[in-house]
Nucleic acid binder design. Structure first.
Length: 112
DNA sequence: CCCATGACTAATT
DNA sequence: AAATTAGCCATGG
């Protein structure tokens, strides 16, 4: 099995600081250079072996909607609120403000 | 190799 | 501004 893609994804997710969020599309761009793989990114995080340990709850939709979560959307919203993220309904209020942009990711490469 | 699936996106209505 | 639609891509059967 080639779990490289998922690794790449999780590596980015780990970098998202507390209280901030990023989008599936941004991660896709970081890895493939295009936003098109956004859906594949979602697939990857959906299989996240360590929810909460790996902050996949900080990955949201491009329109500011929180999106889904393996442990339930309510759980996701709860976690985000705990981190100080303002949420209104299912949307992140200050989405643009706390967005962890592409340029902020570190270019960590896989040893080995 | 073909087909279905999904924690998505952008464009259109 | 909310709902629909078509497009895209990494998996798994």
């Amino acid at each position: 099995m080639d779990e490289n893609f998922q690794e790449e994804v999780l590596n980015r997710v780990k970098q998202i600081p507390r209280g901030k969020v990023t989008t599936y599309g941004e991660i896709a761009r970081e890895i493939t250079g295009s936003v098109r793989a956004a859906r594949a990114v979602a697939q990857a995080v959906a299989k996240n072996p360590y929810p909460i340990v790996i902050p996949c709850h900080r990955v949201v939709r491009s329109n500011g909607d929180v999106g889904g979560y393996s442990l339930g959307v309510d759980k996701k919203i709860g976690l985000l609120k705990e981190e100080g993220v303002e949420i209104k309904g299912t949307k992140v209020v200050n989405f643009e403000e706390i967005l962890f942009k592409k340029s902020q990711f570190q270019i960590l490469q896989n040893p080995k």
